[in-house]
Design a protein around this nucleic acid. Structure first.
Lengths: 164, 164
DNA sequence: CAAGATTGATCTGTCAATCTTC
DNA sequence: GAAGATTGACAGATCAATCTTG
């Protein structure tokens, strides 16, 4: 019954503004995408590259850093992971030889994550199939105008989600 | 570097169609939403109702079934969970007294998940805060026209994601 | 034996506690 | 002592294997 209908608004201090029919339909469709899309990309990467989505984007963001390097805390921001999650994750990538860690020479409180040659090669090898998937699943499904709107909406949603 | 730029398209049989600047920007924004939104909703539900997102939607979908009942396999579809995941999950909901299981009287191969009174009460108590969150984070951020477009795009994305 | 469902092993993420460096 | 980072214990998801019913 929730999220729609005017159903029993038991607990809330003031009457709940339930979703109307259109809002409900929009939410269901969008919610489904939000749940299913990451999963589909996970599968693609797992199958084609033996990487998880966040592993792939960790390598991608590392490749954009000077010297293929990023501080752990910055990388956590960029990949939207907690520092703890990233630390575990980098431990695994390290074990596979894709990344190595070094304390920042200038300030030992920071740890630098540094992509190895093998890590870069892995990213380069994995990218084409992943970009194909992103195209197939998202980009090529929408017109350029729609894509602009999606970006626009996404940016506004983001400010909300990030506690605007 | 991936997803954008014309970078080394090593593996793929044919040249990779990398994302152009606008496509890349749209993808980054949308990707961020897709990753962050579920997490925000998880936090809200965890905090306000001690439920995970999928637990909440499991209860919600159950409440829509005749007699507050759904077959496990149908419920798995509705909640976008694997049968295995759902089974583990229902075991937990059962332990908390929100759901019980019975074999289908007509065909013992099916298992019915049945929401208890306590389960329904839990849903009713949890719904207002969750709907508020969905409004704050998504619905009220977009105009009705945008919401229509979002729904429209989402539906098309879904057919792709579901292997259209 | 096929479809529905469950189970157990394993892996990943989270949370809280801890360690290190300045 | 505060910020950055790591660690370990635990909760939840996945995958493969298994069980059950018709």
């Amino acid at each position: 019954m929730p999220t729609s209908s005017k159903g029993p608004a038991k607990a809330a201090a003031r009457a709940t503004r339930w979703l109307d029919k259109d809002e409900e339909a929009a939410w269901r469709a969008f919610h489904a995408v939000v749940i299913k899309l990451p999963w589909t990309l996970e599968r693609q990467l797992q199958r084609d590259a033996d990487l998880s989505l966040i592993e792939y984007y960790t390598l991608a963001r590392l490749s954009e850093g000077t010297q293929h390097t990023q501080r752990m805390s910055v990388l956590a921001e960029l990949t939207d992971a907690s520092l703890s999650r990233l630390s575990h994750l980098v431990t695994r990538l390290e074990a596979r030889g894709y990344v190595r860690r070094e304390p920042d020479p200038d300030d030992g409180r920071f740890t630098n994550a540094i992509m190895t040659k093998a890590g870069y090669a892995k990213l380069v090898a994995s990218a084409p199939a992943h970009v194909e998937a992103v195209r197939d699943l998202v980009i090529d499904v929408l017109s350029p105008a729609e894509l602009r709107r999606l970006r626009d909406m996404s940016q506004r949603l983001l400010t909300q989600v990030e506690g605007g």
